[in-house]
């Protein structure tokens, strides 16, 4: 169980995390979603006691990270930036961490085999590829068999096979009753990995709900209409209170109106329709919709910053 209460942190004049509160329960995979610069990595660094919060507190199983006597046996962490001496072998890196916690060498061998680094374990970590570096980071996180996992962008640099492996592993660890908290800016990855989502933008909480709820509640559903009479249809739909935008020469994207109603309107005027396809929103779309205005480096569509809607489960 991870609890963040009223966390804030600024670097220089820039506010990275802005009064953020959330809880990550055990027994499921919780995703931490947000665009680049939203404050995900900073929040994780605050959770792990690497940076000091300006306000608020973060606790793991009720204790601040700094109060944990053998922290790697409680929390396994993977940070976004590399945390390995480039001149040291993967084996020695893990051995050092194991020695600080009183863990046996056998455990080092176990995690090396678990992440598939056996053949390169004695080589200098400086020569590792991004994917191998991630595997080493995951090995370090799993070293102390912790009940809580905090992983910053764990799929970064992993090949598809490794992503599938990691996803399965995280689900299994969560099913064992552990707390699994992972960040990503890849929305589709979250949709298949995380059951619960904590969404942030500009250091603020935007949503704290199940992944399904996030997609369902935050997206505008649209209908794709294929017809030779797009101009006439667009007028009819606008007159009936919907919104239509031309996608192709013979295609319209209609929002604010169900497919049945569009079919009725077209039939009443005797206009041909080739296709009428309801579009279900992807997590990507839901995400962009919700974080519009919270994008650190984005340009708001209408030139003004409107506050993102807040969703609470």
């Amino acid at each position: 169980m991870i609890e963040a209460r009223d966390l804030s942190k600024h670097y220089g004049g820039k506010r990275a995390v802005d009064h953020l509160s959330f809880t990550v329960p055990p027994g499921k995979v919780t995703g931490f979603l947000g665009p680049n610069g939203a404050g995900k990595s900073t929040t994780m660094r605050l959770l792990l006691g690497l940076d000091r919060a300006d306000t608020g507190s973060a606790t793991i199983d009720g204790k601040p990270y700094r109060d944990l006597a053998e922290p790697l046996r409680v929390v396994g962490a993977l940070l976004e930036a590399r945390a390995v001496h480039t001149g040291r072998s993967a084996y020695n890196h893990l051995l050092i961490l194991a020695q600080t916690q009183g863990l046996p060498r056998r455990r080092v061998e176990e995690v090396i085999d678990l992440v598939g680094l056996h053949d390169v374990a004695r080589k200098r970590a400086g020569g590792f590829s991004l994917g191998m570096g991630q595997r080493l980071g995951i090995a370090a996180a799993l070293l102390g068999d912790p009940a809580v996992l905090v992983l910053d962008e764990p799929v970064n640099g992993l090949d598809p096979e490794a992503i599938l492996w990691l996803r399965t592993l995280l689900r299994r660890l969560a099913a064992e009753g552990r707390t699994v908290f992972l960040s990503s800016h890849l929305m589709n990855e979250m949709a298949v990995t995380a059951e619960h989502l904590i969404v942030v933008g500009r250091g603020r909480l935007i949503a704290d709900c199940t992944t399904q709820q996030f997609i369902a509640r935050s997206s505008q559903k649209s209908v794709l209409v294929k017809s030779p009479h797009v101009r006439r249809l667009a007028e009819l739909i606008a007159a009936a209170g919907g919104a239509a935008a031309a996608a192709e020469a013979d295609e319209l994207t209609v929002t604010g109106m169900p497919a049945e109603r569009i079919g009725y309107l077209a039939a009443r005027e005797g206009l041909e329709i080739y296709g009428l396809t309801p579009q279900s929103a992807t997590l990507e779309e839901a995400f962009i919709d919700l974080t519009r205005g919270s994008l650190e480096y984005g340009t708001p569509a209408d030139g003004t910053h409107h506050r993102a809607k807040e969703i609470k489960a």
Partner: peptide
Amino acid sequence: ASEYSTGSIRASLLAVPT
């Protein structure tokens, strides 16, 4: 200083947060 230049300081401090 090499702990800082390579980033291994983060792993070190995660293991010994005091």
